[in-house]
Nucleic acid binder design. Structure first.
Lengths: 229, 229
DNA sequence: CCATAAGTGGAAGACCCCCTCCACTTACCT
DNA sequence: AGGTAAGTGGAGGGGGTCTTCCACTTATGG
């Protein structure tokens, strides 16, 4: 996939039909499909069969494919809200006068989303090529993230040897928790983040701060990815 | 699956044929199958088709099933070495006169294995029911792990509020890195562990120790679980 | 009210995977 | 050497999924 420029100016990609110049009932159905997709993908994972989404939405499979040409287009669309949440959090972080607070709040927000909406990690991390404009969009994000990090470091809120790569590192680590049911995954993520944030400090206090409660995890009955009993 | 006692004393489970009272060629084939399984599962993931393993081993599918009654039996068997490595590391940790060192070395060893042999996390974490005797075996492991933790804490090598649940937490976090190619995942795991270990300290030094090099990770091109392009 | 084009459902084609079955082959023992 | 039981390969039944196709339905504008 040799990253080509590919500016497609006015069209909405060759095959994607116009966004909302749809017949009234079609638009209604489109919404029902999206809602069903969100529910099904969040509860059963992104590999849930298309027919399950269709059934839940009360429509035929063809309707799904008419609106979303491919399976992953639907997956991406279903998690657009979460992507927006992350984008917003990013903006807020950049706008925050306290860059340390901004960065930590951003990470907390993104991680919460990752761990709450099962399946979102697949979209967010694997980078469904459709998810973003890719080439440019991601490069920009990366630059701005570096900026945020540098500012937090300059403000004395991040240790000197903190690296930009530690952000994806943290995101991957948290995504490892996402396979657990949200009741477990959320406290787990909070505790993991607390541990990490304490390590990220430039000037750690002599006694580390308190931890949020431990998650209900034990070696027995961990839910790995795709258990096949 | 209501955890029943189920002591099966001498037999090797009803259907599993005796381990090595096999005809010479059969035993040879069994080895080839196992080796092929290790290669295929490690490179393509545990969901690789049985036919792929068979092809790689140069045998028919029936041979796989004759030796390993079910798919997950083969998966489990293929990762038996890694399980043994972990078990050994566990023993060593318990035997270590310095419980702090023992615990940290154990975690490092297990995490390295998790991240090096792709697919192992599925076996280790999801707990393929066949993997261990389950009921008892795991309960014992859990007890001994608690013991190890308590000793490390008493020795002043773990903060007071460290919880046993933090172990599975850490393992899950590391397993989130396992989707990356090993060249990336290994340094990533090392760095993550360093961050966490520093946070686990009961008496952190005023200046935290150095970190291992940052892994080659950026937001672009993360390999999520099961990308479907 | 009706013509028409957009929209729809469900069946069917294409593919892939697990696992079993059985006629054939091969090692082992006498 | 040859009988016998263990071992084998590959085809195929059974189940599942993605995606397409097309005759039918329905909103909408004149």
């Amino acid at each position: 996939m040799p990253a080509q420029p590919s500016h497609n100016p006015p069209e909405h990609t060759p095959e994607t039909p116009p966004p909302d110049a749809l017949r009234a009932d079609a638009r209604r159905n489109r919404e029902r499909v999206l809602e069903a997709a969100r529910e099904v993908f969040s509860s059963q994972g992104v590999d849930a069969p298309m027919s399950a989404v269709a059934r839940r939405a009360g429509v035929g499979v063809a309707t799904l494919y008419r609106r979303f040409p491919t399976r992953s287009a639907l997956v991406t669309a279903a998690f657009e809200d979460q992507l927006a949440v992350c984008a917003t959090a990013f903006e807020e972080a950049l706008a925050d006068p306290d860059p340390g607070h901004g960065l930590y709040a951003l990470l907390e927000k993104v991680c919460t989303t990752l761990v709450t909406d099962r399946g979102f990690e697949t979209v967010f991390l694997a980078g469904f090529p459709e998810a973003l404009d890719y080439d440019r969009e991601r490069a920009i994000a990366e630059d701005r993230l570096s900026l945020l990090i540098r500012r937090a470091r300059d403000a004395g809120r991040l240790r000197e040897d903190f690296a930009p790569a530690d952000i994806p590192l943290l995101l991957l680590a948290v995504s490892g928790l996402a396979a657990q049911p949200p009741e477990t995954a959320l406290p787990a993520a909070r505790r993991l983040l607390t541990y990490l944030f304490q390590s990220f400090q430039a000037h750690p206090p002599s006694r580390p701060g308190p931890l949020p409660p431990a998650p209900p995890l034990d070696l027995t009955g961990l839910h790995g990815p795709a258990g096949r009993p």
